[in-house]
Amino acid sequence: MNIELVLFGVFAVMTLLSAGLVISARSPINSAMALVSTFFFLAGIYVLLWAHTVAAVQVLVYAGAIMVLFLFVIMLLNLGDAPHRGKPSATRFLGGASALGLLAVLGVTLGRLDALPAPMGAQQQATFGTMAAIGETIFTAWLLPFEAVSLLLLVAMVGAVVVAKSRI
């Protein structure tokens, strides 16, 4: 057992605990702060996978910029004192059933994977995780999903401001 395996276990457990806090927190602010810690633990996992660029982007973009945007929207909508409803409803039941279904699909998929991935060649190792390789992948193979996510974030932000403007 080496230190990388121990650190991976620690980061994985802390990521799962933080993600559980995101779901179970009563306050939206506490939930957003738990999401920040989840992003930091994921960045630690990326560092262990030798994807330092992705880890830096994770911290700067997600834990920094996106979470500031989320906190701004939460404060703009004045959700700090939102009541936590404990009674079961149909949407909670459907959400739980969907989560269990996705967990089952993930389990089946992981069960079908090979035990060890194929080793990388020297050329792949030299370019893995670099900014040039990531940029080339994003802006060639994943350009449409990248633009769709940016448009989705813009629409969500405008929608939150429109909803909050009626209260102000």
Rank of each mutant, 00 (worst) to 15 (best):
M1Q: 13
V6F: 07
V10N: 04
F11G: 08
A12T: 15
A12Q: 12
L16T: 13
S18E: 04
A19V: 14
G20P: 03
L21G: 13
V22H: 02
S24W: 14
P28H: 12
I29Y: 10
N30L: 14
S31K: 08
A34C: 01
L35C: 06
S37V: 15
S37F: 11
T38W: 03
G44I: 09
I45Y: 05
V47P: 00
V47G: 01
L49W: 00
L49E: 04
W50C: 02
W50G: 02
A51G: 12
V57H: 00
V59K: 03
L71P: 08
F72K: 02
N78T: 08
G80S: 10
P83K: 05
G86M: 11
G86W: 11
K87P: 00
S89D: 15
A90M: 13
A90E: 11
A97K: 01
S98H: 01
S98D: 05
L100G: 02
A104T: 05
L106M: 05
G111D: 03
L113C: 09
L113D: 07
D114H: 04
L116R: 13
G121S: 15
A122D: 06
A122T: 13
Q123H: 12
Q124W: 04
F128D: 07
M131Y: 07
I134D: 02
I134A: 13
G135Y: 09
T137A: 13
F139P: 03
F139I: 02
T140D: 04
T140H: 02
L144Y: 09
E147G: 00
V149L: 14
L153K: 03
L154Q: 08
A156Q: 06
G159Y: 02
A160I: 02
A160K: 02
V162I: 07
A164S: 11
S166G: 07
